[in-house]
């Protein structure tokens, strides 16, 4: 697998061009990653409205930081999730100072009837509580792996863990979840 280095193309010869390409890529990635970003953040904070706001904030922060994005050896979507990871940590820190409680707020589709809505809400509550029992690191791995769809190597890059550590953590997290929801 050849290493793809930005700046080696005849299209992008200088730093300004790299930034322009990065901007274009960022707007393309918005369409592909916004939903996944919301889901990942939701798993961490369990408030959909807040997750949607924070996901938007991630892209704005990315745009502001594009000058520092080098791209070499790091794909932009992984960089975006690193920003998301930090945004979530800041948010959780702020919330803990305000002493608020988790909301477990998720919008249930309108198409469901009352009975289905209640059932779905109970199910969401039960599974969300199971997720809540995981350690923050385990929730991070589950969020990035299953809700954002990243590879274990990418998760390791974001969380600063080896691939083997991520794989072990994900197995332990899933086993724990399974026991909790059985």
């Amino acid at each position: 697998m050849p290493e793809v280095e930005p700046g080696r193309s005849s299209v992008s010869r200088d730093r300004g061009t790299e930034i322009e390409l990065a901007r274009a890529l960022l707007t393309n990635l918005y369409e592909e990653y916004y939903d996944r970003m919301v889901r990942y953040i939701f798993v961490r904070i369990r408030d959909q409205t807040e997750a949607e706001d924070l996901a938007g904030e991630v892209f704005l922060k990315a745009l502001k930081s594009l000058d520092s994005y080098r791209g070499r050896g790091e794909q932009m979507h992984v960089w975006l999730f690193k920003i998301a990871h930090n945004v979530v940590i800041d948010h959780v820190r702020k919330m803990s100072k305000r002493k608020t409680v988790p909301l477990n707020e998720m919008e249930i589709p309108d198409r469901l009837n009352v009975e289905e809505t209640v059932e779905t809400r109970l199910q969401v509550e039960r599974l969300s509580q199971a997720l809540e029992q995981l350690t923050p690191s385990q929730r991070e791995v589950i969020g990035l792996r299953f809700f954002a769809g990243l590879s274990s190597a990418e998760v390791g890059e974001i969380s600063g863990k080896s691939g083997a550590a991520v794989r072990e953590m994900q197995r332990a997290a899933i086993e724990k979840l399974r026991k909790l929801i059985r």
Binding site: Q48, E52, D53, G56, E107, L127, I142, F146, R178
Partner: peptide, 18 residues
Amino acid sequence: SILDIRATCSPMPSPAAK
């Protein structure tokens, strides 16, 4: 287990928010 959780706890972002 994990597929159940993903299917149930994956919010669909609102088009307006997006």
